[in-house]
Amino acid sequence: MSIQHFRVALIPFFAAFCLPVFAHPETLVKVKDAEDQLGARVGYIELDLNSGKILESFRPEERFPMMSTFKVLLCGAVLSRVDAGQEQLGRRIHYSQNDLVEYSPVTEKHLTDGMTVRELCSAAITMSDNTAANLLLTTIGGPKELTAFLHNMGDHVTRLDRWEPELNEAIPNDERDTTMPAAMATTLRKLLTGELLTLASRQQLIDWMEADKVAGPLLRSALPAGWFIADKSGAGERGSRGIIAALGPDGKPSRIVVIYTTGSQATMDERNRQIAEIGASLIKHW
Rank of each mutant, 00 (worst) to 15 (best):
H24L: 11
H24C: 09
P25E: 10
P25F: 15
E26T: 15
L28E: 06
L28H: 13
K30M: 13
V31C: 05
V31K: 00
V31F: 03
K32P: 01
K32S: 06
D33K: 03
A34H: 11
A34C: 08
E35I: 12
E35M: 13
E35V: 14
D36I: 11
D36P: 13
Q37M: 06
Q37I: 09
L38Y: 14
L38R: 05
A40L: 04
R41M: 15
V42N: 03
V42T: 06
G43W: 00
Y44I: 09
I45W: 02
I45E: 10
L47E: 11
L47I: 13
L47S: 10
D48N: 03
D48Q: 03
L49V: 15
L49I: 15
N50Q: 10
S51C: 05
G52I: 03
G52K: 07
K53S: 14
I54A: 11
I54G: 08
S57L: 11
F58V: 15
F58K: 15
R59Y: 13
R59C: 07
R59S: 11
R59I: 01
P60T: 07
P60I: 15
P60E: 04
E61A: 10
E62Q: 04
R63D: 03
R63E: 04
P65E: 02
P65V: 14
S68M: 00
S68R: 00
T69N: 02
F70Q: 13
K71C: 00
V72C: 11
V72G: 03
V72F: 03
V72S: 07
V72Y: 00
L73F: 14
L74K: 01
C75I: 09
A77R: 04
A77N: 06
V78L: 09
V78C: 11
L79D: 01
L79R: 00
S80I: 15
R81A: 08
R81T: 09
R81G: 05
R81Y: 06
V82N: 10
V82Y: 09
A84G: 14
A84W: 15
Q88V: 11
G90F: 06
G90A: 09
R91H: 06
R92K: 13
I93K: 15
H94C: 05
H94P: 04
H94S: 07
Y95G: 05
Y95E: 01
S96H: 10
S96V: 07
N98E: 06
D99A: 09
L100S: 12
L100Y: 09
V101M: 14
E102T: 07
Y103W: 11
Y103D: 07
S104F: 03
P105K: 09
V106H: 11
V106K: 13
T107C: 15
T107N: 09
T107Q: 02
T107W: 01
K109N: 15
K109S: 13
K109W: 14
K109P: 11
K109F: 14
L111R: 11
D113A: 04
D113Q: 04
D113R: 04
M115Y: 08
M115P: 02
M115H: 03
V117A: 12
V117W: 02
R118W: 12
L120T: 06
C121T: 03
S122D: 10
A123G: 09
I125S: 03
I125C: 08
I125K: 00
T126W: 08
M127W: 13
M127L: 12
S128C: 01
T131Y: 05
A132Y: 01
A132T: 02
A133V: 03
N134A: 08
L136P: 01
L137T: 07
L137G: 05
L137H: 04
T138G: 13
T139C: 15
T139Q: 13
T139K: 05
I140K: 03
P143R: 04
P143C: 13
K144P: 06
T147L: 06
T147D: 05
A148Y: 05
A148G: 04
A148V: 04
F149Q: 13
F149K: 06
L150I: 14
L150E: 02
L150N: 07
L150R: 00
N152H: 11
N152I: 07
M153S: 05
M153C: 05
G154A: 11
G154K: 11
D155W: 00
H156G: 11
H156P: 11
R159K: 15
L160G: 13
L160I: 14
L160P: 10
L160H: 12
R162W: 02
R162E: 13
R162L: 05
W163H: 04
W163M: 12
W163L: 08
E164A: 00
P165R: 06
P165H: 14
E169F: 07
A170C: 11
I171A: 15
I171P: 15
I171D: 15
I171C: 15
P172L: 11
N173Y: 13
D174N: 06
E175G: 09
E175P: 09
D177Q: 01
D177N: 10
T178W: 01
T178D: 02
T179L: 00
T179N: 00
T179Q: 00
T179S: 03
M180T: 11
M180F: 15
M180E: 14
P181H: 01
A182N: 06
A182W: 05
A182D: 07
A182M: 05
A183H: 14
A183T: 13
M184I: 04
R189L: 11
R189V: 07
L191D: 00
L191H: 11
L192R: 00
T193D: 08
G194F: 11
E195F: 03
L196D: 12
L197W: 10
L197D: 08
L199I: 11
A200E: 08
A200N: 15
A200K: 15
A200G: 12
Q203G: 04
Q204V: 06
Q204K: 07
Q204D: 09
L205D: 00
L205A: 05
L205V: 07
D207M: 07
D207W: 11
W208D: 07
M209T: 03
M209R: 01
M209G: 03
D212I: 03
K213H: 04
K213F: 06
V214A: 14
V214Y: 14
A215G: 15
G216I: 08
G216D: 10
G216M: 14
G216K: 11
L219D: 09
R220L: 04
S221H: 04
A222P: 12
A222V: 13
P224Y: 04
A225N: 14
G226V: 03
G226W: 12
G226I: 03
W227T: 02
F228C: 10
I229A: 14
I229H: 02
I229K: 02
D231S: 13
K232P: 00
K232F: 00
S233F: 00
G234F: 01
A235T: 05
A235G: 07
G236H: 03
E237Q: 14
R238C: 09
R238H: 14
R238W: 06
S240M: 08
R241S: 10
G242W: 00
I243C: 14
I243Y: 06
I243Q: 09
I243K: 01
I244W: 00
I244K: 00
A245G: 08
A245P: 01
A246G: 13
A246T: 08
G248D: 02
P249F: 07
P249T: 13
D250P: 04
D250T: 04
G251V: 13
K252C: 09
P253G: 05
S254A: 08
R255G: 03
R255P: 01
R255F: 03
V257S: 09
I259S: 02
I259G: 01
Y260Q: 03
T261L: 11
S264Q: 06
Q265N: 08
T267L: 08
M268I: 15
M268C: 13
D269P: 10
D269F: 15
D269A: 12
R271Y: 10
R271I: 05
N272K: 03
N272G: 10
Q274Y: 04
Q274L: 08
I275Q: 00
I275K: 01
A276M: 04
E277I: 15
I278D: 00
I278F: 12
G279T: 07
A280C: 12
S281R: 11
I283F: 15
I283S: 15
K284G: 11
H285N: 10
H285M: 12
H285R: 10
H285K: 11
H285T: 10
H285I: 06
W286I: 09
W286T: 02
